[in-house]
């Protein structure tokens, strides 16, 4: 096992390229268009869950309102592309920036708040966004929603076919992972993680926790907005009920099932949840029952998630004392 890891580290770039190439083949290898749709969903939710994971998994806030940021992105795309015909590729960053701005606004009242107080504010904010989307008819189409959102231009390909739309989600997902990995390995990422692990200690080391929490919210919201922007043309029709708190809970379930505080966790979670809910479609309402049972069962059996939450305070707070610890104690006496 360690040898595999070693090899992987040695040829890291190569490994990623192979992986990416495999992912590129997926839509052509799948026999049915509907499977490609599932693949699109998996990629989309993986990125969305990843964006929530930035907030919940890396800075340790419990945000329950990711659906709100997602909605901002989707409605930016829906409204501006249908009304002014602005290009998707221009709206993609714009949606992110708008969502980040809303994320900033939401973060303001939460800076003083902790734990569950913060959660209810994010939840309330997401509900407010949904209700505004439902009622602001001139812009959001109100209860009717926005129909016929134009498909993005992409090298003249028919992006209305999931086969090609897949690449838009893949593109976003890869960029997200690439950028996020870089951020996490930097001073900013360390500051986030330090807030998650021990806020008082972080403060005493000069980490401006308010600033970094706010930044964290904005960063997470940015990506949720970007994914939302790509979601709108994919489903072609958006309306407020697609962004209910249940959507937010669903994404939360993905990161907890997959594992919080790791980059791979949301991907695993998204894959499991999407495959499960799609493959059980024939069971109709029962599939939600099975999904609910799965969530509870996961919390009982493997609360750290399938991929295993990072070694962190989120994993349940148990530290395993291994060989190293014994060595450390030996060292302490003569050290």
């Amino acid at each position: 096992m360690s040898k595999v890891k070693e090899l992987f580290n040695k040829y890291q770039v190569l490994a990623y390229i192979v992986l990416l190439a495999l992912l590129c083949v997926v839509p052509f290898a799948l026999p049915k268009a509907v499977y490609v749709r599932y693949a699109c969903n998996i990629l989309m939710y993986a990125t969305l869950a990843g964006s929530l994971n930035i907030i919940n998994g890396y800075s340790g806030q419990t945000c329950l309102g990711q659906a709100g940021f997602f909605a901002i992105g989707a409605y930016t795309m829906g409204a501006l592309s249908t009304k002014f015909g602005i290009s998707f590729w221009l709206l993609l960053p714009l949606a992110g920036i708008l969502a980040a701005f809303v994320g900033f606004l939401v973060s303001l009242p939460t800076l003083k708040l902790k734990g569950i107080y913060l959660s209810i504010v994010t939840l309330g904010a997401s509900e407010i966004i949904r209700i505004i989307a439902q009622t602001w008819t001139p812009v959001t189409g109100g209860a009717m929603g926005i129909k016929q959102i134009p498909y993005p231009e992409m090298f003249g390909l028919d992006t209305f076919r999931p086969k090609y739309y897949y690449f838009i989600f893949l593109f976003i997902g890869v960029i997200f992972l690439f950028v996020t990995k870089r951020v996490l390995q930097s001073r900013v990422g360390r500051a986030w993680i330090s807030i998650r692990e021990d806020e008082i200690a972080a403060k005493s080391l000069g980490v401006q926790t308010s600033f970094y929490k706010s930044l964290n919210f904005m960063y997470g919201a940015f990506w949720a907005g970007v994914v939302g922007c790509a979601y709108a043309p994919f489903v072609n029709y958006i309306e407020a009920s697609q962004f209910s708190t249940d959507t937010g809970f669903n994404v939360l379930a993905m990161i907890v099932i997959g594992g919080q505080g790791t980059l791979i966790g949301p991907i695993v979670g998204s894959t499991i949840v999407t495959l499960l809910t799609e493959s059980l479609r024939f069971l109709e309402s029962w599939r939600y029952v099975i999904y609910a049972v799965l969530i509870i069962a996961m919390m009982w059996l493997r609360p750290q998630g399938i991929a295993g939450a990072s070694r962190s305070i989120l994993a349940g707070g148990k530290i395993k004392r291994k060989k190293q610890a014994a060595g450390a104690e030996g060292g302490a006496t003569n050290g």
Binding site: F249, M299, L314
Partner: peptide, 15 residues
Amino acid sequence: PRHISLLCTIGFSML
């Protein structure tokens, strides 16, 4: 950690 029971109750509510 608190999010575990939180998610459990979300699952239960769906159920």
